[in-house]
Design a protein around this nucleic acid. Structure first.
Lengths: 226, 226
DNA sequence: CCGGGGCAAAGTGTATACGAAGAACAATCT
DNA sequence: AGATTGTTCTTCGTATACACTTTGCCCCGG
């Protein structure tokens, strides 16, 4: 892609608003800011050591991404991941990831597969070590990688956004079904390597079904909408 | 949902940033601002008669939605809908709309179906009158309605965003395949009414395939990535 | 004790101004 | 011509001001 060049030339500045957005997302996903918690601009500005303007811009985007809800003249509160139920989320993600798996299977090169296998191996090791944080990271990395291999930017960006929410739900529920999950991942990568789109899609669906069941269980009686 | 109440009580203020965002989106979709065109904050502020602050916030969201590209320290330009190819977009939309159709079929009440039929009738009339603008509106309305009936907020908001881009591509290409499209719509609503999820899904896919083919044709040799 | 009424505080929404830094472009010099 | 230097345009972030809402609180009267 020609855009890579431009990106390099143009910008390594990383505006404050983006840093704030990243930090805000991270804080919400990690549960530092809990669902329902009020986020005043002044407070965030102070927390991140910036003025109100970058905070406001970050908040608007966070709203668009569904991490916060903004009520006019009343300010922002951390969204409740249950509004827009978890199962609703998984139904969509299922379709999207299945599509990604299919496309990845159809387009993956040998190097792509090799990269996936590396992640798989690291994941296995981390699972053995009980390093759950690292496992979660690798989990993300794997899924993101597959999205990238799919070569569909729309799919990629949408699924990525959804994926962040999944992480959010998972962390809040502290759900860790790591070992099981990795076995499924291996199936998925095998399918992608085979180049068989149907098989890859089925593997993705199976994985998501299991993940969804686990998340749902963990979230039982979860977060009241307030 | 309980949120409806809150929304009513809380806010009919409609902040400037939202108006600006809506206007900006509309201007881009309608082709008033063309792909690649530079959007300086001052200019937008003047165009919309507001200060730069609301403009900046609107721009950030527009970027998140994919309507503009912001290059740090260089400002915003209208995105080129071809970056992130049209076919990529349709592949995703296909899956999403198919899911929506299935869910809608499974959940639609008699009143839901009646509402769809009203839109269908209005669409037929508008098509007869050659009122293309109205046809496009009703087209949107129908699809949005189906999304709403699906009852899945995630699906709804994602597909909605995608749909705006579809409109954009269509308008830029001035593609109007209205009559054909409405025949397919009737099939779709029939399927939803039947409550048969599979059938609804198939109808949605058929519709999208046709639409995609048309859009692709119209966009041939379209918008250089600049 | 309880239900307002009214008042003050908090916080958002918007405008404006200003300085710093970057990018683009033109002019200048070698 | 090619490189260098300025100049200008613009974004990015800060700060400030102020209107207007919402909210919470206190007090008062029933």
């Amino acid at each position: 892609m020609a855009e890579d060049l431009r990106d390099k030339l143009g910008a390594q500045h990383l505006p404050l608003r983006d840093q704030v957005l990243a930090a805000l997302r991270a804080a919400i996903i990690d549960g530092d800011y809990l669902p329902g918690e009020r986020l005043t601009e002044d407070r965030l500005a102070e927390d991140f050591g910036v003025s109100r303007n970058p905070v406001r811009e970050a908040l608007r985007v966070a709203e668009a991404e569904g991490f916060v809800v903004i009520l006019p003249r009343r300010g922002a509160v951390v969204a409740s991941p249950s509004s827009g139920t978890i199962s609703d989320m998984f139904v969509v993600r299922e379709r999207l990831e299945a599509l990604a798996a299919r496309l990845a299977a159809e387009r993956a090169t040998a190097t792509d597969v090799a990269a996936l296998r590396v992640l798989l191996e690291q994941g296995r090791a981390a699972t053995e070590r009980q390093d759950l944080r690292r496992v979660a990271e690798l989990n993300s990395a794997l899924h993101l990688r597959i999205l990238q291999i799919s070569g569909n930017p729309w799919l990629s960006s949408i699924a990525k956004a959804l994926y962040l929410h999944v992480q959010w739900v998972f962390r809040l529920g502290a759900a860790e079904r790591a070992p099981h999950s990795w076995a499924e991942h291996i199936q998925l990568v095998d399918a992608i390597e085979s180049g068989d789109g149907d098989r890859a899609e089925r593997a993705a669906l199976a994985h998501l079904d299991a993940a969804s069941a686990a998340a749902y269980e963990n979230a039982e009686g979860g977060y009241g909408a307030r």
